[in-house]
């Protein structure tokens, strides 16, 4: 989904504002993608996310990638240019969630699963995936 805010600002500006990161500092070494524990499962690889934001391409918000990132901070720790991609991913998720959009439907999680899952899983998931 492309948020309403796209009419008022560019993806690059809004992402930099929310994340506090300088997106053009990236020099595309690819370390983020190489180290990402879920990188191989992503439709857009982490370094490509940066490229799409640089190009103001809102379609990045429709990727599976921004939801698959679980904020493990591996990319942030290894980036030679100090671009915290973890924060960039969070900013992109929030652009969607702040439209009052939930990425997951809480009501669709079965009672059996809810009884088994630890509170820490539910709290973290709902914080990252519901608006």
């Amino acid at each position: 989904m492309i948020p309403k805010i796209s009419k008022e600002t560019t993806l690059l500006d809004k992402t930099e504002e929310l994340s506090g990161e300088k997106i053009f500092s990236c020099h595309k070494c690819g370390k983020c993608s190489a180290g990402c524990p879920v990188g191989t499962l992503m439709d857009v690889r982490p370094h490509q996310v940066i490229e799409l934001v640089q190009a103001n391409d809102w379609s990045v918000l429709e990727s599976r990638t921004i939801w698959l990132c679980a904020s493990c901070f591996q990319c942030a720790t290894r980036c030679p240019k100090d671009v915290d991609l973890t924060r960039v991913m969070e900013a992109l998720r929030l652009l969607v969630l702040r439209e009052n959009f939930d990425h997951i439907r809480i009501s669709e999680i079965s009672k059996e699963e809810l009884r088994e899952l630890p509170p820490v899983a539910l709290v973290s998931n709902f914080r990252k995936c519901t608006g």
Binding site: P37, V38, L41, L117, A121, N125
Partner: peptide, 20 residues
């Protein structure tokens, strides 16, 4: 030893956690 286990995706992408 430092690799993420898939974390909270145990709720929404269980298959990712299983793979990790």
């Amino acid at each position: 030893k430092l690799e993420c286990c898939g974390s909270y995706h145990t709720v929404d992408y269980k298959e990712v956690v299983c793979e990790k």
